[in-house]
């Protein structure tokens, strides 16, 4: 890839969303990446976010997914979330916060040897459920937990 081509790609990036998806893929060295699902992350409600990201919004509750999140988060900007899925053949784990403006927070596609375990930190605007959706064998499973977000630091 020569320099001119690279500049051209960066230009396309600024120009539009379609260009963005393509150049994001090309600019990443050696990594095989799927296009970033813009529709899923910009969706305003959980169902349409799930449809855009995973193709379906019908998830059944499962006790095989363990979601570890604080009961009360004093700082909504840093809420630690740990997800452990013991469903065999877990393909992807998605984290959604229904009361955030854009519920879709993160989507993790796991490789064949990757265990159903993800730990990360997310932002929450206000008290809300945290919904975790696991895709395994073409089906969706979900679990949720409420996290209270206290603003102002005076305890809720």
């Amino acid at each position: 890839m020569n320099n001119n081509r690279r500049i051209l790609l960066k230009g396309t990036l600024a120009a539009g969303a379609a260009g963005m998806a393509i150049s994001a893929g090309l600019l990443t060295p050696k990594a095989v990446m799927a296009a970033w699902p813009k529709a899923a992350f910009e969706a305003k409600d959980v169902d349409s976010a799930l449809k855009a990201a995973l193709g379906s919004a019908s998830a059944s509750d499962s006790s095989k997914i363990k979601l570890k999140a604080p009961d009360i988060a004093e700082n909504g900007a840093v809420v630690p979330i740990t997800v452990t899925s013991s469903i065999s053949g877990t393909e992807s784990i998605s984290i959604l916060v229904p009361k955030n403006g854009m519920p879709m927070t993160a989507n993790f596609n796991l490789g064949a040897n990757t265990e159903g375990y993800i730990s990360t930190r997310i932002k929450m605007g206000k008290t809300s459920d945290v919904v975790v959706v696991v895709k395994a064998g073409g089906k969706l499973f979900s679990t949720k937990k409420q996290v209270k977000v206290t603003i102002g630091g005076c305890g809720g």
């Binding site: 992350f41 740990t82 040897n113 990757t114 932002k123």
Partner: peptide, 24 residues
């Protein structure tokens, strides 16, 4: 081989932390 491919939105915390496990 790809072991993890994550797509994030703006709701992941500043200076993100990520932990995962894989076998083999």
């Amino acid at each position: 081989k790809s072991v993890l491919n994550a797509q994030w939105g703006g709701a992941v915390s500043k200076n993100p932390f990520l932990s995962f496990k894989f076998s083999g």
